[in-house]
Amino acid sequence: MAVVKSKLLKQLSDNYPNFLKKDLEKFTNIILSEIKRSLKRGDRVELRGFGVFSTNTQKARISRNPKTGEKVNTPEKKTIHFKMSKDLFKKINNNEE
């Protein structure tokens, strides 16, 4: 099951009924946009107890189209790398909540 933003907001509103849904949505949007902005700048984002997001740069290269076998130039691009924290690793592997 994937975690989608609407389900996350529903869970937050169920756990914190004294907050308005629109405020929780605004809060969630601010957090996600700040993570995106930091990654775009090339900064590292660390969420203690959860993990670290960082960007890697893939160099430009010549790759092949698997269907036709022709050579294709692939430009340089950034990818996102995630490394989970030890706490999250333990929770996942020990089935802790």
Rank of each mutant, 00 (worst) to 15 (best):
E34W: 04
M84H: 15
F89Y: 10
Y16S: 08
K59S: 15
N18A: 10
L24T: 07
K59D: 14
I35Y: 01
I31T: 12
N56L: 06
L20T: 14
T74M: 13
K78C: 00
K10P: 01
N73T: 03
T28V: 15
L8D: 00
N94Y: 03
T79S: 11
S63P: 10
A60P: 12
T79V: 13
F89E: 08
E70M: 08
K86Q: 13
N94V: 00
R37S: 15
K26Y: 13
A2E: 14
T74Q: 07
K22R: 07
E34M: 08
R48H: 11
L39H: 05
E46I: 12
V4D: 14
K83M: 09
T68C: 09
T55W: 10
Q11Y: 07
N93D: 08
K90E: 13
R41S: 14
N56G: 08
V3C: 04
P17T: 11
K83Y: 01
F27V: 15
K90F: 08
T68G: 03
F89V: 00
L47Y: 00
K86I: 10
K22Y: 05
S85W: 04
S38A: 15
D14Q: 14
S6V: 12
N73F: 12
G42E: 05
E25H: 09
F82W: 03
R48I: 10
S6W: 02
N29W: 05
T74F: 12
I30K: 05
D87P: 00
V72K: 06
T79W: 11
L24N: 06
I80C: 09
M1A: 12
K26Q: 11
R64Y: 07
R44N: 04
F27D: 00
K22V: 09
P75K: 15
F50W: 09
G42I: 03
K78M: 07
N93W: 05
L88W: 11
Y16N: 08
G49V: 03
E34D: 13
V72M: 13
E46L: 12
T28C: 06
G42Y: 01
A2Y: 13
S33W: 07
L32I: 13
K71D: 12
F53D: 05
T79P: 06
D87F: 04
K21P: 02
F89L: 05
H81I: 01
D23S: 11
S13H: 07
N15L: 11
R64A: 03
E96V: 06
S85E: 08
P75T: 04
S33L: 14
F53M: 02
E76T: 14
E34Y: 01
S63R: 12
F89Q: 09
F53C: 01
L8E: 00
K26D: 10
D87C: 02
I31V: 15
N15H: 10
